[in-house]
Each structure stands twice: as structure tokens, then as C-alpha cells.
């Protein structure tokens, strides 16, 4: 099993393997470009540790740890 996005360290890269979650959250993630195969970098965490900021498909996206838990990645090469 790959690493979940919520467990990434700042600066860590990965490639998304699968996205789970409840319908609305999952759909929103898809619409924002969080789909299997996309490369993702954890850019930073908010001052209080949550939410997270990631770079995906060339733009900045923020999501909470709870939502990042739905995103599983393949091991980075």
C-alpha cells in the first residue's frame, strides 16, 4: 500500500495512485485535478499544521489533512 498524501513531509513528491472518499469530496478532488496519475508535491503546511498546500497540475491547491487522507500515492522514484 502506498503512502497517503496526509502523511507527506514538506517538499515530498509523489504520484497519485487512487482517490477514495465520500461522493462529494471525491468528486471535488477529481474536479480540482487530483486524479490517479497526477504528480503532487506537498509545498507547505498551514501555521497550525493543517490544512496542507500542494502543487498539482501546475497550480497551488489547499486541502485539509482529512481530505488528503483520501489520496493514496505510489512510492516516489
Amino acid at each position: 500500500m502506498g503512502k497517503l498524501l496526509c502523511n507527506f513531509a514538506v517538499g515530498e513528491k509523489g504520484r497519485i495512485a487512487s482517490v477514495s472518499g465520500e461522493g462529494r469530496v471525491r468528486r471535488r478532488l477529481f474536479d480540482m485535478g487530483v486524479t490517479p496519475g497526477a504528480d503532487v508535491i506537498l509545498v507547505k503546511k498551514a501555521p497550525l499544521g493543517d490544512p496542507l498546500e500542494v502543487t498539482i497540475r501546475g497550480y497551488q491547491l489547499t486541502l485539509r489533512k482529512a481530505e488528503a487522507e483520501c489520496v493514496e500515492t505510489e512510492a516516489a522514484k
Binding site: Y59, L61, L63
Partner: peptide
């Protein structure tokens, strides 16, 4: 509500 939001440049 989910917090999945673009951080625009």
C-alpha cells in the same frame, strides 16, 4: 464543508 480550494497566484 470540504476545504479543497485553489490558492490563486
Amino acid at each position: 464543508p470540504p476545504f479543497i480550494m485553489e490558492l490563486p497566484a
